[in-house]
């Protein structure tokens, strides 16, 4: 339990600092690279929550595909690869106040509703039982039985997004 709490603390700290750098850095490419750090820490947190398939998908899709897409977007729009002072608009203070207010509101509500709720301890559970009830196999079974229709709809959505992106970005 102590080891889990220590690793949670390290991962949460890394994720928070890197996320702050994503929204404050003056270099667009650095922002994309800090985003990789945030996404990797969140993937490690999924492993801490015994969600190994989501962690693998997080690494594959987010870090492998989405960040590469971002880097291509940065390259193609060329907003001066070096550092650039004009990345923030003049609403920065209002945005900061909004973010802090929202965080105060959310954390008050969360502390109020989930005060001392502990996640059920998995220490007594054997690895086979854990894999059978919430591992990759269980997730696959759920996707192809209970959530079959949403899964098919998501497939069509991906196809539509693919066609839409090509139509938007092609040169006539």
């Amino acid at each position: 339990m102590v080891a889990q709490n220590i690793s949670f603390g390290i991962l949460a700290l890394v994720a928070t600092v890197a996320a702050l750098r994503v929204v404050t850095t003056r270099n667009v490419v650095h922002a994309a690279l800090y985003l990789v750090v945030v996404l990797a820490s969140v993937g490690a947190l999924y492993i801490l929550l015994a969600a190994e398939f989501v962690a693998a998908v997080q690494i594959l899709i987010y870090i492998g595909a989405i960040v590469v897409l971002f880097l291509f977007g940065i390259m193609l729009t060329r907003p001066s690869i070096g550092s650039d002072a004009g990345l923030d608009n003049d609403q920065r203070w209002i945005a900061g106040v909004t973010g802090l207010f929202l965080f105060g509101l959310l954390s008050t509500v969360l502390v109020d509703s989930f005060a001392d709720d502990h996640l059920p301890s998995l220490e007594g559970v054997s690895r086979e039982a854990l894999t059978a009830e919430r591992g990759t196999g269980a997730v696959g079974d759920a996707i192809f039985s209970t959530y079959l229709i949403p899964f098919e709809v998501v497939s069509v959505l991906l196809l539509a997004a693919l066609v839409g992106a090509i139509v938007l970005a092609r040169r006539d």
Binding site: T16, A19, V42, P79, N89, A95, G99, L106
Partner: peptide, 28 residues
Amino acid sequence: MLVNQFLILGAVLFCIGVYGVLARRNGV
């Protein structure tokens, strides 16, 4: 582990994201 650890980390990331959406002017 408390569930609130994860939920409050989620709230922190959410608020940082909201700040970024409001304060950044570059579309990417």
